[in-house]
Structure formats: structure tokens, C-alpha cells
């Protein structure tokens, strides 16, 4: 009997003696537990991305400030001055624009970086195991750093205009979370698709640009509501960012802005739907990432 014969039998050792069983299509019972177990990796990956981002460009932080500031100036001039659209209540137009620009820029950069994240970390994926969900989520956290930096501009603008913040601000973390989830759902979907269909990345800039036009960034959503009527406004609210932006404006501008409740709930529902679809598709394709990336 050769050594080969001895081992090519089905093992007699019972399953209970093992911690881990790897099988084709085997659902991993430990997945969410593993995700928690790998939290250190998540923190370190996010820190790496942030460190690299601010090291690579000489202007680093300045860029994170300049970009939203200039966008805000242009939008204020185009929509506020040239088109003469009204602001929310008595809020200064630039502040109203900026209150929307904050979540919008966070959303668009989070979506873009999450979408590229798997392909960008192909090297990691093909060499080590960890729950792949860590990668797109940590990419979004990196965008969150930019968001915090650009928040400084808002503080300065508030002081400049002498505009006081109210208790509504307490709700802001909730809307930040919604913005996070709104980017995560489509981000997961696109990044998983991008692993398989490499030309999917060309869709992202288009999506982001398209999104800017169909979201109330440069103008108040009440302008849209007035023009469309509340029925069509519900359709408009299918865009998850409508809810997020209205929420931000409400938290920052206080009673000057108002939230259209049915529209807001619809937006939230869309965020949830995208999230479920995104996580589902990501988990479904996750195991084959290493084989195709």
C-alpha cells in the first residue's frame, strides 16, 4: 500500500473536531462574526487610505477645502444670481447650497471610490482572506474624512453670515448615516459588477454627473415641489439623495427648510432597497472575486 492509497479516502474524523469547513457554495455561518473579528484591519485600511490621500497631493487638505468652496461659489452665482431662484426661508443662498453640497460631495466621492475599491485592491484580494466587505466600506470612510474637512468651511461661513445653528443639528449624525448608507448600497453593487465587467467604471462618472442634475444641490427642493406638484415630487424623491439633502438642510438651516415627509420616507426606502440589493449581490459574488479580479 503506497502513501497515496492511505490518504485518498474520505476522512473518518468527525466534523465537530474542526473549526472551519470549506465547501463549494457553503454559506459561511461566521461571516458577520468574521467582519467584527477583522475590525482592526478595517481601521488600518481606512487609515492607510486617508494617510495616502493626504500625503500624495502637496495641497492635500487644501484641495479638500478648495473643491467644495469653488463649487459652492459657482452654484450660488448660477442658480442664486443668474437664475434668481429663491433660498430656503431667510437662509443665505451660499449656506443653503453648501448644506446640500456637503452630503452630495460625500456621496459622489464615496460612490466613486467604493466602486473602484475592489479592483484597486486586487493585490490584497488575491493574496489574503478577509471579509471583502471591508474594502468598499473603508473606501467610503476615506471620503468621510474629506467630508469632515469641508465641514470646516460651513463653520466659517456660518460665522461670516452670523447664522446661528439650532437644536436641529442634533439630527445631523442620523442624516450622515443615511448618506453613508445611500452611497454604500450602489457602491457595493457597482464595485462587485466592476470586478466582472471592467468597463463598468465608465458608467460611474456619468451616474455621478447625472445625479447632480436630478438632486436639489444648487437649488432648494421646494422650488421643484412648487413646479411639479406633490404627486410628481414623490417620483422625484425616488432619488435617495433628495431625502439626504433635505435632511441636511433641515438640520443645518433649521426651520428655514422643511422636510416633505412622504418624499423623505420614500427616499429612505430607496436607500434601504439599494442597500439590500447591494449587499445581496456583493455577498453572492464575493467568493469568486479572487478568481477573476
Amino acid at each position: 500500500m503506497t502513501a497515496l492509497d492511505q490518504v485518498s479516502r474520505v476522512s473518518s474524523v468527525p466534523d465537530a473536531e474542526f473549526d472551519l469547513i470549506l465547501e463549494a457554495g457553503g454559506t459561511e455561518r461566521h461571516y458577520w462574526f468574521d467582519l467584527w473579528h477583522y475590525r482592526d484591519l478595517f481601521i488600518i485600511l481606512a487609515r492607510r487610505d486617508i494617510a495616502v490621500r493626504y500625503k500624495q497631493t502637496a495641497v492635500g487638505v487644501a484641495w479638500a477645502l478648495l473643491q467644495p468652496f469653488l463649487t459652492m461659489l459657482i452654484m450660488t452665482v448660477i442658480f442664486g444670481k443668474v437664475a434668481g431662484l429663491p433660498s430656503d426661508g431667510t437662509a443665505p443662498y451660499p449656506i443653503m447650497v453648501f448644506a446640500a453640497l456637503l452630503p452630495w460631495m460625500f456621496f459622489s466621492s464615496a460612490l466613486t471610490s467604493a466602486s473602484q475599491s475592489l479592483v484597486g485592491n486586487a493585490n490584497l484580494i488575491s493574496k489574503v482572506y478577509f471579509p471583502r466587505l471591508i474594502i468598499p466600506v473603508s473606501a467610503i470612510v476615506t471620503s468621510f474624512a474629506d467630508f469632515l474637512v469641508s465641514f470646516l468651511i460651513l463653520v466659517v461661513m456660518m460665522a461670516w453670515y452670523g447664522f446661528a445653528l439650532g437644536w436641529h443639528l442634533l439630527a445631523l449624525p442620523f442624516f450622515v448615516l443615511v448618506a453613508f448608507l445611500a452611497a454604500l448600497g450602489p457602491g457595493l453593487l457597482i464595485t462587485a459588477l466592476n470586478v466582472k465587467y471592467r468597463d463598468f467604471r465608465y458608467v460611474i462618472p456619468f451616474l455621478v454627473q447625472f445625479g447632480l442634475y436630478i438632486s436639489p444641490v444648487g437649488f432648494s427642493s421646494s422650488v421643484i415641489k412648487e413646479k411639479l406638484g406633490s404627486g410628481l415630487f414623490l417620483l422625484y424623491s425616488l432619488n435617495p439623495m433628495v431625502g439626504v439633502i433635505d435632511g441636511f438642510r433641515w438640520a443645518i438651516l433649521g426651520d428655514n427648510a422643511s422636510i416633505d415627509l412622504p418624499g423623505f420616507l420614500l427616499s429612505l426606502g430607496c436607500v434601504g432597497l439599494f442597500l439590500v440589493v447591494g449587499v445581496w449581490y456583493f455577498r453572492k459574488t464575493e467568493k469568486s472575486f479572487a478568481d477573476i479580479v
Partner: peptide
Amino acid sequence: KVLSRITEPTRGRVRIR
């Protein structure tokens, strides 16, 4: 790669302690 969980088996199984 299979043993380190990077890629999953097509058939058969691996058990690890």
C-alpha cells in the same frame, strides 16, 4: 489559496482546526 480561504473549492471539502 483554497486552504487560506481566498478562493472556494469547486467540489469536495476542506476542514481546518
